[in-house]
Design a protein around this nucleic acid. Structure first.
Lengths: 341, 341
DNA sequence: GTGAAAGCGCTAACAA
DNA sequence: TTGTTAGCGCTTTCAC
């Protein structure tokens, strides 16, 4: 492995000059600089980032810890983070906590030990322990879900989105909507539940809620539980697209026809939502923008610019009405049915 | 930031003893060890991994560079990598090259400079330049796609899968299958094309091929081109699920009914493939296993175990027949049509 | 079994 | 403008 002193020797200058040239920090004599670059090129020199990080007491790497790499919401968010990071000279270490509090803790530990320049975290629970990170003065931005402690947070308005979704079901004439959501200690799960709750309570309807893991299997289990029960719902508000995947599969298995026998609205406009039959009515979140905004805030924190108090950014959501919330019978041929929305 | 000397002072021992205790390498007097652990705990000491890496001349971090984070195939593969890495004490830095040769090069550079313990790469093209990495003696395993140079490679048998897919279309009575695939310099794209080609040539059929970007937009464009042409195909073999997403959207827009007007088989069993209408016939790859196997090989390389010559692992694929390759008309109500397969 | 001391490769303060 | 020097925090001989 060729190192800086090898380049220095080859270019007949000191290591400091090589460093200065390659970091083009200070003015170096063009002739020397040329010799340095030529030597570095010829020897195939790659600066050792580990040594540089140690000396500089800091890295150029972020940890982005998300709860589910299979969820298109998070991959879109990750792209938003990545694009802004790239522009600002940072690399992104993407970690999948898999909705597992231990994995999350492990990754937070790695981020701390590797002295990440910053962390963007989608917390598994509001009680996720980030105290060590804060104690280490590593800037942290929470995305999608908030934390018990006060940190920069970027998310969408889950309550409002859930209200809109539930009201849409009722507007279409459904009368017994149930809510399938994630674990109660995950902020998005609870807020979407609360939005649903506020609507059904206001109208004096039964509150029917299933808390399950935020994964396809959870959605499947929830549908099983709901429709094996004595008084099944007539429609579903589903809190994210992974749950929807499982729920739809199970409904299909039971030959319950969405948009006819059953109404359905789900959070997140997954790529397949407009493709399946019937097309799915969704509450879309600006996932990419959430990630990009979180990244912008993180850059500010690292550079110690901007406001000192924690920022709270709340994006709006958009209800995209498609076929799955319909109640009346569709035409004969499903393929040619225009959306009734 | 508390460092090892602070712990040493607090525990009234030397830094060396703290290091030995915390790495439980050598035998340390239990009494001292207890004092060290107590002090480390009390002060909230976190070893600085950057310093450790420099001293040890190596890291515990892998770079996993994939071409599309939105593609469920790659996220499943990533989970396979991650699980094995975790078991073996490594962390995985996931990088999304986004089918962009420059981004890929940038990430390869980062992996090299950060002295990654190993790299798993899904090469954008067979000509992707990994020479620097090899020169730095960083173990490299190619996944999904091969490279021009001879390195450990783990992938599925694309040719065989493409042959099976194309034959399935013909078996169902389709007579003008087209192939929608990725850029010709991506190995999977070309092999899937070749599999298709071998079948249509053998039968003397027209070879109708669209090379596009391996993304949803590409699939859309390909369908536009194919069906705006003078002699459109009657069926499609699509080389991955992202292309399929775009192709299906465009077919839907054109009111071409898959499984009736148009036959379709695609690579990759995406989560939505069995959910949409009609359900999609796919060539499934063992994505998780490919990732896990690549990770196992990488561990071997890092530990300098196992065979010295490059390993080539080829997984089989599985044709899962569903509705989208049908030709005869389905029953009236699409929801209750049983699969004809 | 423990401590002293060297040094991983780089950058930044200080001298020249 | 350039070189000399110190030192980032840790691990690992080497001597005791």
């Amino acid at each position: 492995m060729v190192k800086i002193t090898d380049v220095a020797t080859a270019a007949r200058v000191s290591a400091a000059t090589v460093s200065r040239t390659l970091n083009n920090n200070e003015k170096v004599d063009p002739a020397l600089a040329a010799r340095v670059r030529e030597a570095a090129e010829r020897l195939g020199y790659r600066p050792n980032a580990v040594a540089r990080n140690l000396r500089r007491q800091g890295t150029q790497v972020w940890a982005l810890i998300i709860t589910d790499i299979n969820n298109p919401f998070f991959t879109a968010l990750a792209r938003g983070v990545e694009d802004v990071a790239q522009e600002s000279g940072f690399s992104v270490l993407l970690c999948n906590s898999d909705e597992d509090i231990d994995k999350e803790a492990r990754y937070l530990g790695v981020a701390e030990q590797e002295r990440a320049a910053g962390v963007i975290l989608s917390p598994r629970a509001t009680t996720s322990d980030v105290s060590r990170l804060l104690a280490s003065n590593i800037p942290l931005v929470a995305v999608d879900r908030g934390l018990g402690v006060s940190v920069d947070t970027v998310r969408a308005d889950s309550v409002q989105g859930a209200v809109a979704a539930t009201e849409q079901l009722l507007r279409r004439g459904w009368q017994r909507p149930a809510c399938i959501t994630g674990p109660a200690d995950a902020e998005t799960a609870e807020e979407r539940h609360l939005g649903y709750q506020s609507v059904v309570r206001r109208l004096g309807l039964d509150e029917i809620v299933q808390h399950v893991r935020f994964q396809a299997e959870g959605g499947q289990q929830a549908v099983q539980a709901l429709f094996d029960a004595a008084a099944p719902p007539d429609s579903l508000f589903v809190a994210n697209s992974m749950l929807a995947l499982g729920a739809l599969a199970e409904l299909k298995r039971r030959r319950l026809r969405v948009g006819r026998d059953i109404g359905l609205v789900t959070f997140d406009d997954a790529p397949w939502a407009s493709l399946i039959h019937p097309t799915i009515t969704v509450v879309a979140q600006p996932a990419y923008d959430i990630g990009a905004e979180a990244a912008r805030i993180l850059v500010q924190r690292i550079r110690k610019e901007g406001p000192t108090e924690p920022q709270q950014v709340l994006f709006g959501t958009e209800l995209i009405v498609r076929q799955s919330c319909r109640r009346r019978k569709p035409h004969r041929s499903a393929d040619t049915v225009p959306s009734t929305s």
